[in-house]
Structure formats: C-alpha cells, structure tokens
Design a protein around this nucleic acid. Sequence first.
DNA 1: ATGGTCGGATGCCGA
Length: 261
Amino acid sequence: MKIASFNINGVKARIEALTDWLAGSEADVVVLQEIKSVDEGFPREHFEDLGWTVETHGQKGFNGVAILSKLPLEDVTRGLPGDDTDEQARYIEATVIGARAVRIAGLYLPNGNPAPGPKYDYKLAWMERLKTRAEELLAGEMPVVMLGDYNVIPQPRDAAKPEQWTGDALFLPESRAALRRIAAEGWSDALRLADPFTDRGPFTFWDYQAGAWPKDNGIRIDHLLLSPEAADLVEESGVDRAARDGDKPSDHVPVWVRLAA
DNA sequence: ATGGTCGGATGCCGA
C-alpha cells in the first residue's frame, strides 16, 4: 500500500498538476491539504471518474483537507478532537482496507505566523490536541500513518538556510519541541528511516518568492509519522521533487511511504 | 487592482 501526502495549494488551480501526478504516482491513498474549497465545490466527480474514492473536509477560502483512495475506506472522521469551537478544516482520518487495515490521519497543522501572537498560540494549542489524538492512535496498536503538512522544520538540516528561519513559527524552539514530544511517544519519521544520515534535506517546500526553487532554498515541513505497527511494514519512502517543476506547480511536493499492507 | 508570488476572495488576507 503506497500512501502519499500533497499540499496542493488550491484544488481548482491544481487540478491538472494533481491529475498528472496521480496518474504516475502508483499511490493507493493520498491525503491532500489546502484544498481551499468547500465540500460542494470540490471536483469530486473528476476524481471519481478516474477511480478514486473521495472524502473531503473543506471550508470557504482557506485550509481544507481531503483523502483520495483507490482502496475502500471505513470509519471516516473529520476534524481534530479537543475543541468544539475550532472551525478550521485541518484534519481527517480514515481506515484504508488493503491486505491489512491501516489508519490514516491527514493533517494541515497551523502555520502560526506571526509569532508571538494569537496565531502562534493557536498553533501550539492545536499541537497539544494533536498530541492527545496521537496518543489515542498509538494505544489502538494498529498500523497508523499520521501525515501531512506539519508546518514545522524539525532540525537545522531540514532547511537549506536555517538562519533565514530564526524567529519563524515553523522553526521556533517551542514548535520543534512540540513536534518532538509527539513523535517521541512512539512515532517514526518515514523520510528519516529512508536516509537517517543525510546532512541536508530532503526538502518538501520551496516558496514561490525570490527564486527559492531554482536556488533549492527549500525546507522539509511535510512529514509522515508511523506508529510502531506501521514502521514494521515499511518498504520504501520518498519525496517527489519533480512535481515542483512543470506548469503551475504547488509550492509543496508529494511525500510518500510504501507499506507491506 | 490588491508589494515581492501565488490562490481565493474581494476591495487584501493567508501562506
């Protein structure tokens, strides 16, 4: 089972680029972030006609997440538990039925800038709620992949120019510590399993501004965290850098992991 | 038309 995450930065603007990538991806299930669409506005039939089951959790204008799957989905839930007043659409879960059942959690963690401020407070509070949910998922002792745009640069080697990110909500010590505390409870970083000794990268995001892509001035903020039961099944993982080229690319590229499931 | 660059939604905001 190949599982991918792609922050597409607007599904309507990205429908061609996303469709092209899906066709060559061999992915069985894909979580999307920043669909920037309400559920009724998502081009559901376009993807259903291509054989994908579509589950969306959208809102007007911003944010919004979705799951596309070629395998059956069960027990789809929308929204991150822990705050009934939170109206931002940033989280969706489903169980994917392959050779084994795998729980998928697709997330779009708040950016948090400017920091300090209310947006940063929201980011940290959201991460605290994610920690609680992550603990519940671990307690279930089934293969779980918790993946998406985490909006956190874990370490200096995850940025081409870490000095540019000092003071940014993506790289502040408190953000990095919050992610570390979640992961340390039993999650493995799938891209680091692939290459634990790399001294720089791989990157998953390059800003549209200032020629970040041609200069390879990127950061790694899209992550795949694996429960122990999922980590035992890993065959391969990677980053589809080529998606940053071509017409009208997203500023993120897909990340993926293949499980024996 | 909206700073740089995009997308979506307006009369800029979020990233």
